[in-house]
Computed example of a mutant assay.
Amino acid sequence: MSQTFVKKHPYHIVDQSPWPLLTSIGTLCSTFGGVMYFHSYPNGGFIAALGVSTILFSLYAWCRDIVREGTYQGQHTAAVQNGLRIGMILFIISEVMFFVSFFWAFFHSSLSPTIEIGAVWPPQGIETLNAWDVPFLNTVILLMSGATVTWSHHAMIHGNRTQSILGLIFTIILAVTFTGLQVMEYREASFSIADGIYGSTFYMATGFHGFHVIVGTCMLSVCLVREYLYHFTTTHHFGFEASAWYWHFVDVVWLFLFTTIYWWGGN
């Protein structure tokens, strides 16, 4: 006598997957390899590169499986999407705390500069960047990208696929332009990350923000491909929604960076 198993809940119980374990191994290798490389141990660079490659491959395969579950298998029900939204919100909160540490270090050093740096801020010998040059241009670019990704999101909600694709294309172009200008700014800066507390806090804060811009650009590029392949609908597009949230977070962090580090901290 055959039995019929009926799913009595809307939640998605994930299948067994090798990617969490493989990602952990890649993280371990990249950390150990990086430490070995910086201390001139043999094969340190190879181990670090192997770890990073493992992480990138695991992320690709993991995200591929998630796309299959949500797009082709229909396992991302409303309850599952709600859980994913909560997870993304918690992730962004953790990212906020990550940047708070850099702002904390900056304000701790700038509001009460020690005698070792001349009791002044910026420290003596540091030629700061003009906030109204490339940084202001990058601010305008990021604000425009926030507007274009919002345009794309609203077009997707209303079923206008063409405008959604155009909005994503414009957002990615602006993001790449921002990264290029940031690289140019670093090349022309008169100080480095080794130039005391100012160089350390400046490059750690702006550098990690630049890394987040690159990650956000990759996320939006994937969304562009998925939108082109008809993966998203007017009511089922959390992958794009999460990417848009992340991009708005990047925009807000840059506004704080521009106001505090470039404008206030550079005067």
Score class of each variant (00 low, 15 high):
146 G>Y: 00
120 V>W: 00
116 E>S: 14
112 S>A: 11
52 V>W: 09
101 S>D: 04
32 F>T: 13
127 E>K: 10
123 P>I: 03
69 E>P: 00
70 G>I: 08
130 N>Y: 05
146 G>C: 01
86 I>N: 09
83 G>P: 04
135 P>L: 01
42 P>V: 02
114 T>G: 11
86 I>E: 08
131 A>V: 05
17 S>C: 02
137 L>A: 13
118 G>A: 10
32 F>V: 15
18 P>I: 07
143 L>H: 03
106 F>K: 00
11 Y>I: 07
130 N>K: 10
64 R>E: 12
114 T>V: 00
57 F>S: 11
98 F>A: 09
23 T>L: 14
76 H>S: 00
75 Q>M: 12
91 F>N: 08
86 I>M: 12
120 V>T: 15
43 N>K: 11
85 R>S: 11
64 R>V: 05
9 H>S: 13
146 G>W: 02
23 T>F: 10
31 T>H: 08
145 S>C: 07
99 F>A: 13
72 Y>I: 09
129 L>M: 09
11 Y>A: 02
50 L>Q: 04
95 E>W: 04
14 V>E: 15
117 I>S: 09
94 S>M: 11
51 G>I: 09
25 I>N: 04
61 A>T: 03
110 S>Q: 05
69 E>Q: 13
106 F>C: 04
25 I>W: 02
129 L>R: 09
104 W>C: 06
12 H>P: 01
16 Q>W: 01
11 Y>M: 13
108 H>K: 14
62 W>V: 02
70 G>D: 15
7 K>D: 05
29 C>S: 14
19 W>E: 11
125 G>H: 01
42 P>D: 08
16 Q>L: 03
60 Y>K: 13
105 A>S: 14
39 H>N: 13
130 N>Q: 12
110 S>T: 00
129 L>S: 10
138 N>D: 12
38 F>I: 12
30 S>D: 05
73 Q>R: 06
140 V>S: 06
149 V>L: 07
141 I>T: 12
40 S>M: 10
41 Y>K: 10
26 G>R: 03
25 I>S: 07
87 G>F: 06
94 S>L: 14
6 V>N: 08
21 L>N: 07
25 I>D: 02
125 G>W: 02
138 N>R: 07
113 P>Q: 07
132 W>L: 14
90 L>T: 14
112 S>R: 06
73 Q>V: 00
88 M>W: 05
77 T>S: 15
140 V>H: 04
110 S>E: 03
100 V>C: 12
148 T>S: 15
102 F>Y: 14
102 F>K: 04
59 L>H: 05
55 I>K: 04
20 P>E: 04
12 H>N: 12
24 S>Y: 08
131 A>H: 11
7 K>N: 08
147 A>I: 14
12 H>R: 09
119 A>G: 04
53 S>R: 01
113 P>H: 04
107 F>W: 02
136 F>A: 13
145 S>M: 13
140 V>N: 08
109 S>E: 11
128 T>Q: 06
22 L>Y: 01
112 S>I: 02
69 E>C: 12
13 I>D: 07
